[in-house]
């Protein structure tokens, strides 16, 4: 008979250590980001129903609850981005005879890339909507 040894662990194991609390906070960023993905889905659905439905959805985005969700999702996305990119040099190890890049450089380049992509997306959206509005 197999008698596996089960290591006992309290359910609140992550509350005692700041590193574990940060880990749980990182994992918890998934909750607002999931709600945000569903919000995007709802916008897409309203778009399929026609212009009036989509403009009503656009007006709904001004509601305090959805603004709060956006604020929470923004904070979650930023915390996710920082922690995600901090892990990149642990997975992407460039250390061969032909090419050697330090982990700090790998992280720096990804940070710069993320800032550029996020700012670029925002600027692109602003320009496109400005061009569409004709002002």
């Amino acid at each position: 008979m197999r008698k596996p040894y089960v290591q006992r662990q309290r359910a609140d194991w992550w509350l005692r250590n700041p590193a574990y609390r940060r880990y749980m906070l990182r994992e918890a960023t998934a909750l607002p980001l999931l709600l945000y993905a569903l919000l995007l889905m709802s916008g897409l659905y309203q778009f399929t129903r026609g212009e009036a439905a989509f403009l009503a959805w656009l007006a709904l985005l001004r509601s305090p609850w959805l603004l709060a969700l956006h604020g929470l999702a923004l904070a979650a996305a930023q915390y996710h981005a920082v922690t995600w990119i901090a892990l990149v040099p642990k997975i992407l190890v460039i250390d061969s005879d032909r090419l050697r890049v330090s982990p700090a450089t790998v992280q720096r380049v990804h940070q710069l890339g993320a800032v550029t992509c996020n700012a670029g997306l925002l600027v692109l959206a602003l320009l496109l909507l400005r061009a569409a509005g004709g002002y």
């Binding site: 990119i85 993320a114 996020n118 925002l122 509005g133």
Partner: peptide
């Protein structure tokens, strides 16, 4: 989400005001 998440969230957060004109 790391490369485009914050920018995307900020865009849709501002969308009603950007589209108001």
């Amino acid at each position: 989400l790391a490369f485009f998440g914050p920018g995307l969230v900020l865009t849709t957060a501002l969308l009603p005001w950007l589209a108001a004109g």
